[in-house]
Design a binder for these strands. Structure first.
Lengths: 132, 132
DNA sequence: CGGAATCCTGCCTGATACTG
DNA sequence: CAGTATCAGGCAGGATTCCG
């Protein structure tokens, strides 16, 4: 009785795909980096340790929610350390770990590429749009 | 009459922020890369030209919609070329441009980093979670 | 100061169906 | 084969409020 066979095959494929995804290092990192705030936090901390409010000011446009969430995830991933100093009011400092610094070095190349080639992209885009 | 002053200030700040964003090369590129399919398409095409269906098979988990959308955007950005051969049925080949190859070279470093360090991240994460 | 919690909206994405 | 069109839902992310 092959009822639902098509749906079952799809589910099967999906499970295999998920397993494949979970086993692929590149994709797991890409999932992390596709959160663009991660890269911006890395860049900010590369210039030195920062307090929460300093990061919020330096990374224009990030909401408190996203900044907190990003920092939590990065702490969880061993990219940054979080140091609470029980003053009044409390101060919280963030710093890169060795792992974070290592990744930042790689992302720096991406940033350099962006500054060198983003104009080419803009030009290509305008030409594409002008051809309808 | 300072009615709506707070809201107006927010709007003003938002407009300034948008203008700032539009002027920042790194962020514009990050916006593109935060679409993770872009990186995967770059990697696939780096191994040689591909037809649409080949890409769909090679990049497991991408929907037709997202693949088409990603390819369109990348073509618009001058990263890939799209060549239609009017056979029956029609064949469409995608290839990297020089710009695309250049970016792919940079992203290759990211991929290498991922394969070298993703385990460190996993370990850090498990330790973080085990500490509640 | 540095968050946590809540609500709520948009759009991102996948599923499905149709076309040349 | 290589798409386009349409619909639906899920959740990313913003705004707001409250707390230690």
């Amino acid at each position: 009785m092959p009822t639902m066979t098509a749906a079952q095959r799809r589910d099967q494929a999906k499970r295999e795909y998920d397993a494949f995804l979970a086993a692929c290092p590149s994709r797991r990192l890409l999932d992390r980096l596709s959160d663009k705030w991660v890269t911006l936090v890395l860049a900010a901390l590369a210039r030195g340790d920062r307090r929460y409010s300093e990061l919020a000011r330096e990374i224009a446009g990030v909401s408190q929610k996203m900044l907190t969430q990003t920092l939590r995830n990065m702490e969880r991933d061993g990219m940054v350390t979080r140091t609470v100093t029980p003053t009044v009011p409390v101060t919280v400092d963030y710093a890169l770990t060795d792992l974070g610094r290592s990744l930042q070095g790689v992302m720096q190349h991406v940033k350099d590429w962006a500054e060198a080639h983003i104009d080419d992209i803009e030009v290509a885009r305008e030409e594409y749009d002008s051809r309808q």
